[in-house]
């Protein structure tokens, strides 16, 4: 079983509980214009060029030694990934962490994710997935059932806005989140706070109210804007629509948390 993997990031602290290893898979079916991992969007590996690393040798065709010109991902087997993953088992055990499969959209590689889950469980390692929940339920259901934690995004409450900014309808996402919450698996729902797009009370409050009614919700996370996608877009020679945009200041984050404070039974966390 193989998949194109853009990165295996160890000592990952923001992709679920505890200390984790996050496996980023190539390929996504959404087109979020703020994506901070834009290199993961195409289904196949793409070339990236980091001009600050280029030494100007002019021998690109012979292969870049300076890692200025690289491919976004490489094909890895489950065992290749496990080679990295198992090295930190002690830290997962100590912290309640494990593996998080992210992307891209992991459910595009559901078979690979399921095989990775089996391999992790065989070694006593917990596994979580970060998914946009947009693929048909029948396609994602078997994958989700193998997870110890499901993390999913609900980026925009308004369907039209969702379509405009991600390229996809959000109705199936709402439905799948509802069905996933019945699987008996802990869930974390998250909204990336994109200034001027998703960061309004009008957007996040209805999402919070919706998921507050669900079962198995651990918490609702608000992910502050991450501007790191800019350098990757530059490497992909794409325009960064969010160039110069800063993460929300603490006072704005506090205001959003206050707006959600009245929703009973829902823990809120700003990441």
């Amino acid at each position: 079983m193989k998949a194109f993997v853009t990165d295996v990031q160890r000592f990952s602290l923001n992709d679920g509980p505890g200390i984790r290893t996050t496996v980023f898979l190539q390929g996504c079916n959404m087109r979020c214009d703020w994506c901070h991992n834009p290199e993961t969007i195409p289904v196949r590996p793409v070339e990236m060029f980091y001009k600050d690393r280029c030494i100007g040798c002019g021998k690109c065709a012979e292969g870049c030694t300076a890692a200025a010109r690289t491919m976004s991902s490489r094909e890895m087997t489950v065992e290749d990934v496990m080679f990295q993953v198992r090295q930190d088992k002690l830290y997962y055990d100590e912290s309640g962490g494990g593996v998080t499969v992210s992307g891209g959209e992991p459910s595009l590689h559901a078979d690979f994710v399921e095989a990775l889950a089996d391999a992790c469980h065989a070694e006593g390692i917990k596994i979580a997935v970060e998914t946009n929940m947009s693929l048909p339920w029948a396609q994602i259901d078997p994958m989700l059932r193998k997870m110890d934690l499901i993390m999913c995004d609900l980026k925009l409450n308004a369907t039209v806005e969702h379509m405009k900014h991600t390229g996809l309808d959000n109705q199936s996402i709402f439905n799948s989140i509802g069905r996933a919450s019945k699987l008996g698996i802990p869930m974390i729902v998250r909204t990336p706070l994109i200034p001027g797009v998703t960061d309004s009370e009008d957007n996040i409050k209805p999402i919070a109210e919706y998921i507050a009614k669900m079962d198995n919700i651990v918490r609702y996370e608000l992910l502050n804007f991450n501007p790191l996608g800019g350098s990757k877009r530059e490497a992909l020679q794409e325009r960064d629509a969010y160039d110069g945009v800063k993460p929300l200041p603490p006072e704005s984050l506090d205001a959003l948390k206050r707006a959600l404070a009245g929703i009973r039974g829902l823990e809120i966390k700003v990441v």
Binding site: F11, L13, G18, I19, L90, Y91, E94, S95, G96, G97
Partner: peptide, 8 residues
């Protein structure tokens, strides 16, 4: 997490 890191 940092406690776990140090302990690990």
């Amino acid at each position: 997490k940092m406690c776990a890191m140090v302990m690990g």
